[in-house]
Nucleic acid binder design. Sequence first.
DNA 1: AGACATGCATACTGGTTGGTATGATTGTTA
DNA 2: TAACAATCATACCAACCAGTATGCATGTCT
Lengths: 205, 205
Amino acid sequence: MIVKNPDQTRKMLLQAAYLEIQRNGFQAACLASILAHTNLTKGALYHHFPNKLTLGYAVVDDIIREDIIGFWVTPLEDCENPIDCLLNIIYRAGEEYRQEYERCGCPLNNLAQEMSPVDEIFRQKINHIYVLWRQGISQALTKGQTDGSVRPDIQPEAAATFIIAAIEGCVGMAKNAQDINVLYKCGVGLVHYLESLRLVLVKEN
Amino acid sequence: MIVKNPDQTRKMLLQAAYLEIQRNGFQAACLASILAHTNLTKGALYHHFPNKLTLGYAVVDDIIREDIIGFWVTPLEDCENPIDCLLNIIYRAGEEYRQEYERCGCPLNNLAQEMSPVDEIFRQKINHIYVLWRQGISQALTKGQTDGSVRPDIQPEAAATFIIAAIEGCVGMAKNAQDINVLYKCGVGLVHYLESLRLVLVKEN
DNA sequence: AGACATGCATACTGGTTGGTATGATTGTTA
DNA sequence: TAACAATCATACCAACCAGTATGCATGTCT
């Protein structure tokens, strides 16, 4: 007999919900469909979550938040050149961008666009992730300005906001076109913008 | 007695559907709620449209498409400097960006993110609008390259794709933050990018 | 070992919603 | 003017789906 493990069950529910939301959005996500991808039933779901909304919140807090911070923010800490760091992360994102991700885009942006006008708590949770993301890039750029690798005449906060917006925009464009080449085309523009933030020192002999 | 005008009725239905979709998305859009914003009933709706999907398609074709082309593409035709033209359009967009638009973002992007993984016809119709938009900017940039106002070393197609992605990204960020200042912050980055496309001629005396 | 809480499964319900069937009114044509 | 088509209103239905009520195991504490 399989021993019932509540933590594992909760993770399975979250993961299945995450995938379902990623494909159909939160409002169109069907609980029965989520459960169909597990061996569980509604009893398990409503034992761990009081309702559908709370399940959605948990997906944001426990999965999407960790993914974004882990992929886009943490690698920016303690890096020599923030521009190079950002470019590396973007290149890595381009490589890991595959199938399901290509079809359904960025989970954070999807939920942001769908739920922010509908549910205030959703909006705040998502916005908080964007704030952390923005702070991560902004602080890295500021540090780059003091280190001399980033142009001193740009505003780190505004630049960070634009970088994130451009990333989400590019992913969204590729998602709609269902063509990864659109992502790469967009990426060229993003790379150009990032390069324009460099402080190029002219050596004097 | 009010004479029943089928064309006008159709327009009323489309407009009400457009607003409802803009707020709740297509899948969550409720036909009863749409009709509640008009003086009409289901009889009228199903006389003009066979089903909800077709109504959604008509909103894309008859409203969103015309809005996008009229605002972002047509003004690019026959303009001296494409960079200046794009900047003017963006500034105008920033001014006209108000309330409902701030809360709900870009209707095209909303539908794109929601429906492109769900319904293939939706995706194609939306993608076609993006293609027209991209062509408009791309052709303007190409013309600018021959005229000498745009740097010859950039790829117009890729640049156009990135510009649109950045616009949609900025609008989406502002929508989620529900703060128009986020839009302006993002706009700074976009303006910087557009300025970087200029071909600056150094006068020789 | 008995009492109790935890972790689920099963069966059911009430409300919502897209869609339909029918009919009434108006305009148009023969 | 009679027949017919167009334009809508009203009433209804069937399906879907979030949420609930109940019960049954398994582990734990005393």
